[in-house]
Design a protein around this nucleic acid. Structure first.
Lengths: 357, 357
DNA sequence: ATCTGCGTTGCACACGATTGCAGAGATACT
DNA sequence: AGTATCTCTGCAATCGTGTGCAACGCAGAT
């Protein structure tokens, strides 16, 4: 059993191994496994059988070197603790697989250098293309992205960027989403509305702009003491407490992200304020999380699947595209308002309707 | 500017390109960039500078082929919609990076073939090792795993498997976790306890065994009508409704997973049953989700970071290990009980304490 | 002046797959 | 029988790096 001893040698089976067994050259084996019409049908089948029973697995590393393509796309994501990203990863993975590409995931985390590191690694590994989702600070590694694109590897960005010139971009229309929410709250009759979120970077800025525009149109003020900027959960705690302590507290809170709304929920509950009877809360993103919360969260968001589809689709078209430098394309997806159970008309001040005081 | 024109050719900069600029052979460039003591310090520096300003990025594909190692480990995970997995991915990525490995993520999803496909792909890409997290059906692609391990690629499994023989394994002690929860509920005074979960595959089986053992010790019955098997969210809805409709309804519900507990919460809320006053709910896993729920969920779980550390550590030691076939090692982590706000003593039946009826 | 040794560099092969090109048979046609 | 054509197979180069081995120049020792 010489074959046995060869197998145990540690290295995996190569074309040459099968060629020896079949008594042909490795070229013929290569062609046979590629189902080339150049090889005799009978020998082709014989070789394919031999390969199967020898457990042959093509060495992608060697193939990639020769073909100068890895059929791999890199996906750079800031983190995965915000449930938006896992949902996105799932969808991107599905669409990529469908297009014949496999995924190389990198987490750019919080630290500054990391985003550049991810791109460097993907460049070194010769990914055919790169999908980059920006975090709260926008596109940190802009120069690396430009360098990568200049060397012929397409890059598509998702999320907020400071300046979208010369970039392929997929993003939600944050401003329109903000407008939808403001309309909803105004229609319900709210006039004292608070906003709460991380520093106005990222889409958060546009969300607030759209939100504020509608309020202004309707003559509803957005008071400074009703605008809370937070950095972490503790800040949310303090902010909500401060809002409730105001002489004229708000009747509705708009949290820039669903995940922040969840923290607001917790804090309101501890303070004994019921949602939506005593306080309306709305979020932004429409994560799965929004339906786990009780009451289920009214929010605004785009379906992730079409977003991911556009994301991958744009990249793949750039990878396969023959045109060397097409005009950069931007795809803007308009999110939809999803009314659930966390929003209701404000309680009339000083008068208690309903059975509970 | 001949260099410019070369750069624009599409292909990236190679060792040979820099060799030409420096007037040396590619071997010398290779050694210089590897900081080998074999090259003259002055030329070494000159070459390094040239490489930097030319934007040289080593071609990992070629290097991998030559060195027969990719410094890459594959991570196979069933899905990412259950928040347990993203948390795990994050930690595994961190630990892998620390050990000098980059990650190749594959989602084995629900379908049967996929787990095998993932392994095949990782094998083809010559990952140095594979981490596989099992789903609800345990280790589906056992034969492929064995084949991969036999060919010299270490594989470490995490999660429940039907038969752990000959496998490197990292798992939580589900049975111990179940015991902890049962003790907690018994200590609180509960005697009518329901259990709810997916079909008793996976660790769920062991969780229930440990849970049941303690109940038996304490003389608490586990009635058939109190045992709900669910497949999806709709089943949870029906199950909870059925429990509440019993002539003698339970005072506590044990959901096998935190994510199921979240659905139970929703259903109880809709039925107007308050937690924990009228019903105690406990989960299993200790996800971040558990603290988002209101009231915050009492559960049991292991910290994911040490789990991930053991996972990666075991694999890396196997990759670097010289010993060809060491005895398979199993690492079992004991989870801890985390008491939060969803568990309380049962209300005395028929008598209303407190201010609310 | 020759030898030994050290420091430095280049030659050439290997990794495993793909593929253009040439050549060997077999067949058909004149 | 000779030639053209077609089918099939092997040779060899190539992708970009890493590295053993030989060779080179130069210094010091004999």
């Amino acid at each position: 059993m010489q074959r046995r001893s060869k197998k145990g040698e540690g290295g995996l089976v190569t074309l040459e191994d099968i060629a020896l067994k079949a008594g042909v050259s490795h070229s013929t084996v290569s062609r046979a496994l590629a189902d080339s019409p150049l090889v005799n049908p009978s020998t082709k089948e014989r070789i394919q059988n031999l390969a199967r029973e020898a457990g042959y697995q093509v060495n992608q590393v060697a193939r990639n070197l020769k073909t100068r393509s890895t059929k791999t796309i890199g996906l750079v994501v800031p983190e995965v603790s915000n449930p938006f990203y896992p949902e996105l990863i799932q969808r991107v993975a599905d669409h990529a697989k469908l297009a014949g590409y496999s995924l190389q995931l990198h987490l750019s985390a919080a630290d500054q250098e990391s985003e550049s590191d991810c791109i460097a690694s993907l460049s070194a590994n010769r990914a055919d293309g790169v999908l980059l989702v920006t975090g709260e600070r926008g596109l940190v590694a802009r120069s690396q992205v430009n360098a990568l694109a200049a060397s012929g590897t397409p890059v598509v960005i998702m999320g907020w960027v400071e300046d979208s010139d010369h970039l392929e971009l997929v993003a939600g229309d944050d401003s329109a989403g903000g407008r939808e929410l403001a309309k909803h709250l105004a229609d319900l009759g709210h006039t004292r509305i608070a906003v709460l979120g991380k520093a106005p970077h990222r889409g958060a800025f546009d969300r607030l702009v759209g939100f504020g525009d509608v309020l202004r149109e309707r003559g509803i003020p957005l008071l400074p003491e009703m605008s809370i900027e937070v950095k972490n959960e503790e800040d949310v705690r303090l902010g909500v407490t401060r809002l409730l302590a105001l002489p004229d507290p708000p009747t509705a809170i708009f949290a820039y992200q669903d995940s922040l709304a969840a923290v607001v929920y917790r804090q309101l509950e501890e303070a004994g304020v019921s949602i939506p009877n005593e306080m309306t809360v709305v979020g932004f993103d429409d994560l799965d999380l929004a339906t786990y919360l009780s009451p289920r969260l009214t929010t605004v968001g785009a379906h992730i699947s079409p977003l991911a589809s556009a994301f991958v689709g744009l990249l793949v078209s750039r990878i396969q595209g023959t045109h060397p430098e097409p005009a950069p394309e931007s795809i803007i997806v308009t999110p939809k308002l999803i009314v659930r159970a966390s929003s209701a008309p404000p309680r009339s001040r000083g008068v208690a309707f309903g059975s509970l005081s």
